[in-house]
Amino acid sequence: MTQADLYTVAGGVLFTIGLYGLITRPHLLYKVLALNVASGGVFMVFVGVARRVPGPAPDPLPHAMVLTGIVVTVSSTAYALALAKRIFTETGMATLDSADTMEGGEDAAE
């Protein structure tokens, strides 16, 4: 177990948490949050694997991919949020499902 392994595994765990949240939370904003948490996990896997190379300097190739990935993630997040707000304005719903699976967004959990 090295430092790189620790962060790589943590990235896998964060991705798993994000994936679970993405499936189980009907609220659109929580889906966006879950996607962002999961993408943070993916980036951590990349940077963790980049750190595994022998020597002091990590592999720059995954770094470049993550760098562009972060900027692409924020733009897709902005687009998803714009869509979610539009859906909300038009329908008054914060979810895509029928009322049966809808959650209030303010309550639940805890």
Partner: peptide
């Protein structure tokens, strides 16, 4: 814990 129907 909230009531189940609030979540999936």
């Amino acid at each position: 814990m909230a009531e189940p129907e609030l979540r999936s």
